[in-house]
Design a protein around this nucleic acid. Sequence first.
DNA 1: TTATTTAAGTTAACAGCGTTAACTTAACAC
DNA 2: GTGTTAAGTTAACGCTGTTAACTTAAATAA
Lengths: 203, 203
Amino acid sequence: MRRKKESSEIKKEIINAARHLFLEEGYQNVSMRKIANKIGYSPTAIYIYFKNKEEILLNLLEEGYNLFYDDLKLAYDSSLNNSYEVRLFKMCEAYIHFGLKQPDYYNIIFTMNMEMNTLLITHSNRYNGFLLLNEVVKDLIQENAFVVNNYELEQPDIYVSNTIWASLHGLTSLLIAFPQFNWGEQDRLIQFHIQTIIQGLKI
Amino acid sequence: MRRKKESSEIKKEIINAARHLFLEEGYQNVSMRKIANKIGYSPTAIYIYFKNKEEILLNLLEEGYNLFYDDLKLAYDSSLNNSYEVRLFKMCEAYIHFGLKQPDYYNIIFTMNMEMNTLLITHSNRYNGFLLLNEVVKDLIQENAFVVNNYELEQPDIYVSNTIWASLHGLTSLLIAFPQFNWGEQDRLIQFHIQTIIQGLKI
DNA sequence: TTATTTAAGTTAACAGCGTTAACTTAACAC
DNA sequence: GTGTTAAGTTAACGCTGTTAACTTAAATAA
């Protein structure tokens, strides 16, 4: 029995159902049958619209990228009147808070390692939160706020933004994975952490 | 047909087979049937020695902890004649290198989040690499190398060691998960990263 | 209008999974 | 020799992702 809905509409239905289930129960614990049941189709119908289960996840991955970008862009825009350093600080805060607010999206993007993910991070140049971070880093290097010359690096901005990214990812992923751990006061730790990185780059 | 082997010996056989398979193909891609096949038993025989698949992983988790501790202890001991700061640097290096040398063990410990894992990290006080890192941090705070007083924190050592751990974990896990990414020159990045954190804590 | 093609969705099935229950068999104690 | 216990087996349950074969309804062509 063919439905009257458009193909793209059903695709959306599938993604919506999958998002709810994935974010609620985790990717591994959601079966195609569960998704199909939620939208009132047979399990195999999904394969008309998606190659396999991972391709559904890939759509959510892109969604996650956009949400991530939105949060970083907001921090970027709302600090147009501030110094580059304050802007960087606010973007770092936005990064960590995104992870804490959307832990499942965060895990999809940064801790579930799929083959295509690297490509997306590296090459997708629209709506890329990384490039936004990178811009601020370049600004800071250009005005000599970060003294990276001592290291005689060929592309210092790469090392700076990678070290920032790594530090942010470290704290974010650990706060998500081990919430029970003795982190001290979480907000203070986040402030301390970001302050430490930026200070370390300044000298 | 009962075997003449001791119960503990078969347990070891299972763990050995599981380790090889897990580290080669990843936990999710190894089935009980594969493990059983490798040691020449029926799949259900494993359940005599282990409650379930996760309990086998838990044994490897402990193995991983010990290997991790060994590497950090070695860095600690081999820097007895150096300053605390150099010691911290070498231990940070040892941390990251452990992750790169044993990515699967590293993932079992720090990125596969199991419920029991947090408990292990926090409470097991023997052979705990964290406590070793924490000691050096305390030494550095005590000799005022780290100026943490500005922050008016109740337990500054917790914030310092957590920020160090988070930064190290961030770089390590990202290098493992996205080897294709444009990291620059990996060894230089590692040096730069550690230097940045330590410098950031000093001021 | 009728016939044919095409797309959408179904059912049945495959091969695999972790795990349990029921059964067999070998080793040991009395 | 008998009874007991532990070690290991086979069969099976209820899942999983995915494929192949089939149905059915809509769109198109004659």
